[in-house]
Write a protein that binds this DNA or RNA. Sequence first.
DNA 1: CGTTTGATTGACACGAGTCAACACCAGTGG
DNA 2: CCACTGGTGTTGACTCGTGTCAATCAAACG
Lengths: 250, 250
Amino acid sequence: MHNPMILRLEHGADLTDTDRTKLAELSASWHSAEAKIDLIREYEEPEHVRIVLEGFACRYKILANGRRSIVAFLVPGDFCDLHVPILGEMDHSIGTITSCKVVEISHPAINDVTERFPRIARALWWSSLVDEGTLRAWLATMGQLPADKQMAHLFCELHLRLKVVGYVSGTTFPMPMSQEDLADALGISTVHANRVLQQLREDGLVVLRGKMLTIPDPERLTEFAEFHPNYLHLNRKSKLGRAMPEEPVT
Amino acid sequence: MHNPMILRLEHGADLTDTDRTKLAELSASWHSAEAKIDLIREYEEPEHVRIVLEGFACRYKILANGRRSIVAFLVPGDFCDLHVPILGEMDHSIGTITSCKVVEISHPAINDVTERFPRIARALWWSSLVDEGTLRAWLATMGQLPADKQMAHLFCELHLRLKVVGYVSGTTFPMPMSQEDLADALGISTVHANRVLQQLREDGLVVLRGKMLTIPDPERLTEFAEFHPNYLHLNRKSKLGRAMPEEPVT
DNA sequence: CGTTTGATTGACACGAGTCAACACCAGTGG
DNA sequence: CCACTGGTGTTGACTCGTGTCAATCAAACG
């Protein structure tokens, strides 16, 4: 099963084959989105829930001074707007970073699924709560850690999240964010993002070639970043150490 | 109806009298908690869901360097750990700021209510999603705004949230956080928090006497802070302008 | 009343922002 | 095929917001 959404949701509930089949069915028809476009904008009230099946995107807000603040990265398998059926209006925008494959599911379809498939409902609930935990972790690191550790923390998180959906081979994974994206996510200037990234490379903590990032010594990076993955709540499955099949994905 | 939880949840769903009665029943038996103690600690798996009926508390994380990061303030009517039934382990701690009245509801009781009272279920879902929106707003302001605007933004938010639960009279409301609390929430040093707060007072943006904060000119403060309350998703009810009864609470 | 916690102040250091230039592609079009 | 372009990454010089350390003051408290 290569569907990243399903791979991820497995961590949120004990899915059955029936559940998986239903999820696969839901994500069968996707459409493409270009890189660097908005999928949804703040104040809109989207008609459906979207899932990123392939590619990278981000949640962001534009502040009054014109600056962009990225408040989350979306990787394959992530939901864009599970909250919309309840909240109505978007309180942030979602934009693609790379080109993406996106699934759209109507609200009625979501309601139907959550009513008929309680384990899926639980997994969606879990997914939303993990997003919340991730926000808390970002807030804590952004508030208290210097920029180099923040960036290292982000890389640790991406490493783990991408491993879950099978995008990591060895300790190498795609990291298509530009330095501006990183800067907007960490709340620093692009110039500073550049310097911090250089420092991490000089120190041998990360290797960045093309858009692929390699972590030569994950333990060292984890310690440096003060990264504690508990907020991702992946413990339902075995430790992830090498428990996940390492299937490189194009 | 003076129950702050109910006042708040009214914004998340169209509650009926039956719903309100049930909610009142759930929060009938509370217990007191002292100021400056932990209600729940990270890594624990609490047995029940807690609600702050009276008093102020905060969610926080302690980082490896020993610093405390406050990632949310809890005001009367807020839930402590709605997510625990799904996530299991806490990924942060909750500590009181003032003494509090706290309600504890067992997981089975919560499950029972959400199954039998769909509007309440929807309101709880809403509550959790608003928490998430608030985290996004904090992350954006913390990342991009200077400390003085951050603090002003926090005051605007507290003003509105407390107005919903009837804790605002005129434009004055309780603000019992110490400067250290504010500093830990904004990710700045206590010294800087002190100076920023002084500046806001000098500029006449806020008046702080005792533990009561007054906003002489809400519009001016809102503009200064670049505060957009859309992330609190209170629009279900009328504008809140003076729609809320102004009932000062001790 | 001493003791303690929280608020305030000053001097100094440093992380990070800003501005501005320049280098390095990849894509485009003549 | 090669200039031109725009996006991205890189670098240096200077400024400024904030942190740190340390001392003092004020108010709350047992």
